[in-house]
């Protein structure tokens, strides 16, 4: 079996819990994540579902290297991300990108979108300015962003347009894995359908792997072949879409599926 792109083994995250020096006491710790094992192969599409506070975003941030785990190991192409050589570190940095839930807070409100994209490309690559401009135009076209919008600020865009820009930013460095943290939750169904179609198209075109976080099972079902169900900081069930949604084994998964409001027509 080939080495997975990203591999998490026994990953946990605690907040607090140190020893207070005065008055000396052991402080209470909150466990956000415990014993998570997750492999994402190249081109895979993994959905992560669960309630708010179940640890989905913590897990995603650890996978992206934005947060250090308290325990466990994160591997990129079989190598521990804490001990990557410089070249591998750059590859990891370029290889994993993130799309946040709210594009308006994920784009610096005081910088023009073109400058934000250019900056991203400058950080990830050694391209010269004309090459960067060409790349930005290319990716913007793929993400359905009118290049005329790049002279604007984020707040001048609608939610759907801003999310397209955020997706374009994530794609600039040709990543192999894109982590999507509730990318359509803040959007109306009409825009949600647009963005879901875009994400499916981009994945097919670039062979991207997705780690797709959502509380909406119907959305995850559309986009992901594999689904992990999280509950209270643990993955309680993982498997193919058909297995998890069709024959759920964990009690919590069944409870979640029962609760989904269905169109009564």
């Amino acid at each position: 079996m080939s080495v997975p792109l990203l591999s998490l083994a026994g990953v946990g995250k605690r907040y607090g819990g140190g020893r207070r020096w005065w008055p000396p006491a052991q402080q209470a710790a909150a466990t956000a994540l415990a014993g998570v094992d997750l492999d994402i192969g190249a081109g895979a599409s993994v959905g992560l579902v669960g309630e708010s506070g179940s640890g989905k975003t913590t897990l995603a941030r650890i996978a992206a290297g934005l947060l250090a785990p308290s325990e466990g190991r994160v591997q990129w192409c079989g190598r521990d991300v804490r001990a990557l050589a410089a070249a591998d570190r750059r590859a990891y940095r370029r290889g994993v990108q993130y799309v946040f839930q709210n594009p308006q807070t994920a784009l610096n409100p005081r910088r023009r979108l073109g400058a934000i994209l250019d900056d991203t490309l400058r950080g990830l690559t050694t391209l010269k300015r004309p090459q960067r401009q060409a790349r930005i135009r290319q990716v913007a076209a793929q993400a359905g962003v009118d290049t005329a919008l790049l002279g604007r600020f984020a707040h001048q865009l609608s939610g759907g347009q801003a999310q397209r820009v955020a997706i374009a930013r994530a794609l600039l460095g040709s990543p192999r894995l894109v982590i999507l943290d509730e990318p359509v939750s803040a959007l109306d169904v009409s825009l949600q359908a647009q963005i879901l179609a875009l994400l499916a198209d981009l994945r097919a075109r670039h062979g991207l792997a997705y780690l797709f976080i959502s509380h909406d099972l119907a959305v995850v079902e559309r986009l992901c072949e594999d689904i992990c169900v999280m509950h209270q900081g643990r993955i309680v069930e993982a498997g193919t879409r058909a297995a998890v949604l069709g024959e759920p084994r964990a009690a919590y998964t069944r409870r979640l599926l029962d609760a989904v409001p269905r169109m009564r027509a």
Partner: peptide, 13 residues
């Protein structure tokens, strides 16, 4: 704690 700071870190800055 804004997301755009996280995004800048992801761009390797």
């Amino acid at each position: 704690h804004q997301d755009y700071i996280a995004a800048a870190r992801l761009a390797g800055h």
